[in-house]
Simulated assay, not measured.
Amino acid sequence: MMKKLVSFLFLVISILGFSQVAVNSGTQNNRWTFGGGLGLGFGSDSYFNLQVSPRVGYKITDQLEGGIIGNVSWQTSNYYKSTMFGVGPFVNYYFARSFFLGANLQQYFINSEEKYTGYKFDKDETALYLGGGYMQSIGNNAFIQFGVMYNVLWKERSSIFSSGFVPSVGFVVGL
């Protein structure tokens, strides 16, 4: 539990630090938005995970944003190592300047290897995330976002992911 708390705090501090740099660059008169997230995880059996998820959006209206999001994730433990790339479109609807609803279609490409047997496998998986959350202004049209998404295409026995639910913490500049 303590490792999860430390990982979460590291994530929040990293996002806030990076977003402060982006806030100072000024994007107030522009319809483009920029942001993303950073994840870091630790666990038993020397488990380590690093994830980076950049995003670029365009404000179609003041409440509707569309764009593209990508991600790359590296995982390793005593038993396996894997790399995952994902890319796809997203759309967010903002209301009351504090809440959002969103959809995100991701195509994932996963490469994994078991360390002891040398068994390698490649897998592709499509995910359609639907959800929403809360966002807090951190100044100069920059926001930190907290949300929950659910992959409506997730199937327990055939998915590489352990669950369809995904919590999210990220930032966006330009709203």
Rank of each mutant, 00 (worst) to 15 (best):
Y150M: 00
Y93R: 01
S98E: 05
Q145D: 07
V56C: 10
Y79M: 10
A142D: 00
N24K: 04
T117N: 07
K123M: 07
S77T: 00
G26L: 08
G70Q: 15
Q75A: 12
I110F: 13
F18L: 11
W32M: 12
F34A: 02
V23T: 14
V87F: 15
T27A: 04
L105N: 10
R31A: 13
M135C: 01
G57V: 15
Q20P: 02
Y80K: 04
S53W: 03
I68P: 08
L64V: 11
G86P: 10
G147P: 00
P89Y: 13
N49A: 09
V87A: 15
T83Y: 13
D62Y: 03
E156L: 08
N104G: 03
Y119G: 11
V152E: 07
L105R: 04
S163E: 09
F99V: 02
L105T: 11
F143Y: 06
E125K: 14
W32N: 07
G35Y: 01
V87C: 12
N49S: 15
N151K: 14
E114Q: 15
V91K: 01
T61N: 11
Y94F: 06
G41V: 02
S44A: 08
V72M: 10
N151Q: 11
D45V: 02
Y129A: 03
G139D: 09
I60H: 08
R55V: 08
N104M: 05
F85C: 10
G37Q: 03
D62M: 02
V152F: 08
V21L: 14
T33P: 01
Q145I: 03
F165K: 14
I144Q: 01
Y129K: 08
V87H: 14
G36Q: 01
Y47G: 10
R97I: 05
N104I: 03
S44G: 07
G102I: 00
V21A: 14
S44W: 05
Q20S: 09
G132N: 04
L153I: 03
Q63M: 05
G57C: 12
G88D: 00
M84L: 13
N140K: 13
A103V: 00
N141E: 15
W74Q: 10
M149Q: 09
W154N: 04
V148M: 15
T126R: 13
V56A: 11
V91E: 07
G41W: 00
F109R: 11
G102R: 02
Q51E: 10
G35W: 03
I144S: 01
Y116Q: 06
N24A: 02
S44Y: 08
Y93W: 11
I110L: 14
N71P: 07
Y94E: 03
G36L: 02
I138L: 04
Y80P: 07
N151V: 09
M135F: 01
T76Q: 09
G133S: 13
Q51W: 01
S73T: 14
G39Y: 01
G88V: 00
Q145M: 09
Y58W: 01
E114R: 07
S73L: 13
L128F: 06
L128I: 06
V52K: 04
